[in-house]
Amino acid sequence: MAWDGTLTPMPVNEDFVPKIQVFEPHRASLPPLIPYLKEFWTRRSFALELARFTDKAEYLDSRLGKIWLVLNPLLLGFVYYLVVTIIRPGGKDPGLTRLDHLLIGLFTFYFAQNCVTAGASSITAGGRLILNQAFPRALLPFSSAIQSFQQFLPTIPVYIFVLVVGKWAYPTTIVPGWTWNFLWIPFILICTGLTGFGLALVFATLNVYFRDTNKLLTYITRIWMYLSPVLWLPNTLRGSMKILLYINPLGPVLDATSRVWVSGESLNKLSFYGSIFWALASIMIGGYFFISRERDFAIRI
């Protein structure tokens, strides 16, 4: 079949825009940040579409797959709830309040965990893209973060459903009515996402150098969850143990999650500043670690 010339003819190279790029050895540890961030920003739709398409590819053949995304943490939540109530039956929490705390904590924790684990393998999994195209590599873990957020969203109606059913079955369950404190929720989610993305940058870089990082990460995230206020309530920590809540990058946001979602309270100072601190610290440390090494990725993949 011969080509019939259907491609639109292009003008003589008049669309040439001088665009000088200089590639030099990277002695400086960071590339110029402003151009990097500009490139990152102009290609943000790439990260968005990549998240959408990856999601589509993963769940293309199973509607059930998508349902499983919600069902999995939900069932785990019930299992954990059983275990926790067997260890410490009764407690002083009325009705199913503790289940509600556990579920929303677990969902939020999984959001962060997915950012980290999916982001950590995004570079090594992005082989061809990395070898054949020059673009800010941080877009790949960023795309994983977006995907994790999209997977988190459908768990919100599930949470509300459990809340309502729980209230109906156990009327003593505490259910906060509408309060303006719910406006903290976007703040919490942004901080959670940023913290997860920042940590993903660290682990994605490590994973390029040490291919068993991902395996290690499965243990880390498990221990991390037990150390986070998901299975236990933040206010069970007494005295110097309280520090556990703040040296954990997700401690403050999970504390805040419990306060806002379950009790309808506002954040306290520590959880507010703690959330901001960990979001910024993760992004800055992860960003530095990642961006200063990303020019090495192509030769190490």
Binding site: V22, F23, E24, P25, H26, I130, L131, N132, R295
Partner: peptide
């Protein structure tokens, strides 16, 4: 995609 070890590309 790769950066030079030495020299320069413009």
């Amino acid at each position: 995609i790769l950066s030079p070890t030495e020299g320069r590309v413009i």
